[in-house]
Simulated scan of single mutants.
Amino acid sequence: MAFINDKGHIDGFEPNLIEEIVKEAGYEMDLVDVEWGGLFGGLATKKFDLLISSITILEERKKRMAFSVPYIRSGVAMLVHKDFKDINSLTELEKLKVVVGAQINTTAYFYLEKFPGLQRKGYEKTGHALLDLVNGGLSAVVGDTAQINYFYNAQPDLKSTSYIAGDRLTSENYGIVFRKEDKVLREEIDKALIKLIKNGRVRALADKWNLGKFVDIPDPTTR
């Protein structure tokens, strides 16, 4: 839910959201664009103080890092090339033994493991997979629902060559990530985030970025 805009700046729902959260919490920040593979290592080695990048709150991850309250509920969605008509599930594509792309080391990428009949192809960024889909190198792409929906509506080439198949395939809560020892920072960011959820600002940003029917704003009192 972030991208580099035509001015070379990081933009999108999550950059806008974290800017407002940090301001509300009374901090200043430098926003850095990092490949997915460098996120968690960079946090552990203190290159960054927190992460926001459509990171699913998982029990396994909680053993190594701390999470904010969820700021959005999303999941996995699928874009299918228009050469394949009336596809609504990965099970249908699995029977065709086609190639499906996803960003490596994400929940979407690991979700494809449930369908061994598919040929899984990994990419550093979802946008790279979508470009391959447009160019005919893939039959489908799975990724974060909000991200898939945004790119689909923002890129005419993508909309003319593919379609969003079926409904959200999974349901996942996304959170901001911290080092476990940074309890004060997490508490202050949580307080600011909860305020922005309750006053409707998070929903307004989701609407601004056309995240669509695939996302919900969770109750901030539950984790």
Rank of each mutant, 00 (worst) to 15 (best):
residue 121 K to Q: 15
residue 134 V to P: 00
residue 191 K to H: 01
residue 169 L to A: 07
residue 208 K to D: 14
residue 25 A to D: 03
residue 188 E to K: 15
residue 168 R to T: 15
residue 10 I to E: 08
residue 212 G to H: 07
residue 99 V to A: 15
residue 27 Y to C: 00
residue 77 A to M: 12
residue 129 A to E: 05
residue 69 V to K: 15
residue 25 A to W: 05
residue 4 I to W: 06
residue 154 A to F: 07
residue 42 G to A: 06
residue 79 L to Y: 10
residue 186 R to T: 00
residue 132 D to T: 13
residue 156 P to T: 11
residue 222 T to Q: 14
residue 170 T to L: 12
residue 142 V to G: 09
residue 50 L to V: 04
residue 146 A to C: 07
residue 45 T to R: 07
residue 85 K to Q: 11
residue 98 V to K: 09
residue 173 N to L: 11
residue 108 A to E: 05
residue 54 S to W: 03
residue 26 G to S: 00
residue 25 A to E: 05
residue 128 H to G: 02
residue 183 K to H: 03
residue 158 L to G: 01
residue 76 V to M: 04
residue 28 E to G: 02
residue 91 T to N: 14
residue 138 L to Q: 03
residue 26 G to Q: 00
residue 25 A to C: 05
residue 4 I to H: 06
residue 124 E to L: 06
residue 55 I to A: 01
residue 12 G to R: 09
residue 115 F to R: 12
residue 198 K to C: 05
residue 96 L to E: 14
residue 2 A to M: 07
residue 194 I to E: 15
residue 43 L to T: 01
residue 197 I to Y: 09
residue 206 A to C: 07
residue 49 D to G: 07
residue 6 D to V: 03
residue 87 I to G: 08
residue 31 L to P: 00
residue 25 A to Q: 05
residue 175 G to S: 10
residue 97 K to I: 13
residue 59 E to W: 01
residue 138 L to K: 01
residue 102 A to W: 04
residue 51 L to S: 02
residue 56 T to D: 13
residue 171 S to P: 06
residue 88 N to K: 13
residue 8 G to I: 10
residue 70 P to S: 15
residue 77 A to C: 14
residue 65 M to P: 00
residue 196 L to N: 06
residue 16 N to F: 08
residue 179 R to V: 02
residue 185 L to W: 01
residue 173 N to T: 01
residue 118 L to Y: 10
residue 147 Q to S: 10
residue 173 N to S: 10
residue 29 M to H: 01
residue 11 D to S: 13
residue 3 F to Q: 10
residue 110 F to I: 11
residue 180 K to Q: 10
residue 147 Q to I: 01
residue 29 M to S: 02
residue 192 A to W: 06
residue 199 N to W: 00
residue 164 I to F: 08
residue 162 S to F: 05
residue 32 V to T: 07
residue 128 H to R: 04
residue 210 N to F: 02
residue 164 I to R: 13
residue 190 D to L: 01
residue 194 I to Q: 14
residue 176 I to W: 07
residue 106 T to N: 03
residue 12 G to H: 08
residue 19 E to T: 09
residue 79 L to H: 06
residue 51 L to A: 02
residue 53 S to P: 05
residue 213 K to Y: 08
residue 147 Q to H: 13
residue 85 K to I: 11
residue 32 V to N: 02
residue 201 R to D: 08
residue 118 L to F: 10
residue 107 T to S: 13
residue 183 K to E: 10
residue 100 V to D: 08
residue 177 V to I: 06
residue 30 D to W: 01
residue 199 N to L: 03
residue 206 A to H: 05
residue 213 K to A: 14
residue 205 L to P: 01
residue 155 Q to L: 11
residue 113 E to V: 06
residue 112 L to P: 13
residue 32 V to C: 03
residue 195 K to A: 09
residue 94 E to K: 11
residue 57 I to D: 15
residue 129 A to S: 07
residue 123 Y to C: 02
residue 10 I to Y: 06
residue 40 F to M: 13
residue 57 I to V: 10
residue 101 G to T: 05
residue 6 D to N: 14
residue 53 S to E: 07
residue 200 G to E: 12
residue 132 D to P: 03
residue 5 N to D: 15
residue 5 N to C: 10
residue 123 Y to S: 03
residue 31 L to T: 01
residue 52 I to G: 12
residue 63 K to V: 06
residue 2 A to Y: 10
residue 82 K to C: 02
residue 105 N to A: 14
residue 35 E to G: 09
residue 167 D to H: 10
residue 214 F to I: 08
residue 180 K to G: 03
residue 32 V to P: 02
residue 84 F to S: 11
residue 98 V to F: 15
residue 177 V to Y: 08
